[in-house]
Design a protein around this nucleic acid. Structure first.
Length: 437
RNA sequence: GCCAAGGUGGCAGAGUCCGGUCUAACGCAGCGGCCUGCAGAGCCGCCCAUCGCCGGUUCAAAUCCGGCCCUUGGCUCCA
């Protein structure tokens, strides 16, 4: 429920009403989240469905002396909440101004912020957002963008203060308290939201409830490219959907968990290809272990202390890493170390430690797949096209093998190169030629 | 100007809270060896770091203190 949404109503790709536009963006976001292999939340609340709770919360704040009404709008009185600024370490006196310039006159203190805004969205605000580069990258040819005539002012709601709309921050407090109670354990968000949004959430929630709102704040840092920061205004950004399309979920997740969530990460082709290698190394080791455990050389009575120690070490290290403020990169390092141990075991023994390998595989699955959300193994990557592709590849490999036996290496290498060009990597081993794609 | 987070090898990125085990992790790139017809993968080994600058504390500092420089986010809109 904001100006930007209202400003986009009528665009053919988004929808004909405020609610529809919001729905479109929600759908896009959820699609991106699915693409990232994220678990679904239990509930995805919408402000428009929580207006009664918002009004109730505002009334509580007014009754408690934390908010006041002015010309049909309601503002939070920051001077009534002495702890205001505690999250971002700001002092009320230092905070210059907030909110619409024309609203400033209604405020008792410049840092007061709106809980309820009188009336609908003004045409000027809509026009402003339409011109301020809102989706400018793809709206050029859209005739609906041309004028603001007939543009809706957005939905308004009845309230004790007249028709109006919820303020910018109150919805989060109201919905959080409705669904999760007065105090929540963890609140996440981007670093750019610390002030004013999270600060205001604390003020609203704690002033109303009289108790702690959030026990732990986890603020995710932003990305920057090697040359400059990544931002929509510079146009040098990539969406989650595009990144998934280009690199795949596994590589992207490896990249995203290859650094601390709360430190700035550099996004570059080089960083991505490093993640490709990191993931590939894990996935190959997983494949080898699966192949070995299913093969004839795996023995229940064989035991490799080095492999077993490495596996238990990886489990301990991974758990310790994640317990340390979600240190996913250190977790990856633990798994990478296990991959090395698997390779050493497979390279150095004729008979494989069946139970040791099973435990190693289980470790990769538990921590790599279940926790980090990666999907190892070639089978997971190919799915559908197996039926036709595999017999074809094998036919070509047979031809290449005959060429090799005949000493016609040029021909063999040409076949290998052609397969590579269509995405099939092959590998000669003592067991025969293997391939992956 | 104010608030906050950072500045570590060719790249990327831990470590800084609780000084010594940091002659600085894992990885990528690079180099050598093993293996291979060759390659790839894998294994073994190696090169590259005065830890932003200056000063201080200490037997000892990437880690603590002070000053400075630079980058990023916020302080106007929006969440």
């Amino acid at each position: 429920m904001n100006e930007k949404i209202v400003a986009r109503v009528g665009r053919s790709d988004l929808g004909d009403s405020e609610s529809e536009v919001a729905r479109t963006y929600i759908a896009r976001t959820l699609a991106a989240m699915r693409g990232l292999n994220l678990e679904r939340a239990t509930v995805y609340p919408r402000v428009s469905e929580h207006v009664p709770e918002v009004i109730e919360l505002i009334e509580t704040l007014i009754e408690g002396g934390y908010a006041y009404e002015a010309n049909g709008s309601v503002y939070f009185d920051v001077t009534a909440f002495p702890e205001y600024g505690k999250l971002s370490n700001q002092r009320v006196e230092e905070i210059e101004t907030q909110g619409d310039p024309e609203e400033r006159g209604e405020k008792r203190h410049p840092a007061d912020f709106a809980l309820w805004k009188s009336g609908g969205v003004s045409p000027e605000a809509i026009a402003e957002h339409r011109h301020e580069g809102v989706e400018s990258e793809n709206s050029v040819e859209n005739p609906a963008e041309a004028g603001t005539e007939g543009a809706p002012a957005g939905q308004v709601f009845e309230s004790p203060w007249g028709e109006g709309r919820p303020g910018w921050h109150i919805e989060c407090s109201a919905m959080s308290m409705t669904h999760l109670g007065e105090t929540i354990d963890i609140h996440v968000g981007g670093r750019d939201l610390v002030f004013p949004h999270h600060e205001n959430e604390i003020a609203q929630s704690e002033a109303a409830s009289g108790t702690e709102f959030v026990r732990y704040w986890l603020h995710a840092d932003l990305f920057e490219t090697a040359e400059e920061k990544m931002s929509s205004s510079l146009g040098n950004f990539i969406t989650v959907g595009e990144a998934i399309g280009e690199y795949g979920t596994n590589v992207l997740r490896t990249f995203l968990t290859a650094g601390a969530y709360n430190s700035t990460q550099t996004y570059s082709e080089e960083a991505i290809s490093e993640s490709e290698e990191r993931f590939a190394r894990l996935s190959r080791a997983y494949d080898r272990a699966i192949g070995a455990v299913d093969g004839p050389d795996a023995r229940t009575k064989a035991g490799d202390p080095a492999l077993r120690e490495a596996t238990e070490g990886a489990r301990t290290d991974f758990t310790a890493a994640l317990n340390d403020d979600f240190d996913t990169r250190e977790g990856q390092a633990a798994l990478l170390a296990l991959a090395g141990a698997i390779n050493r075991h497979l390279d150095g023994n004729d008979k494989y430690d069946y139970r040791g390998l099973r435990r190693a595989i289980e470790t990769l699955e538990t921590f790599g797949e279940d926790v980090l959300g990666l999907a190892f193994g070639t089978s997971a990557a190919v799915e559908g096209n197996v039926s036709i592709a595999e017999p074809l590849i094998e036919t070509i490999l047979d031809a290449r093998e005959r060429a090799r036996e005949a000493g016609e290496y040029d021909r063999a290498d040409a076949l290998r190169e052609e397969l590579r060009e269509v995405g099939v990597e092959i590998e000669d081993t003592t067991e025969g030629t293997e391939y992956r794609y």
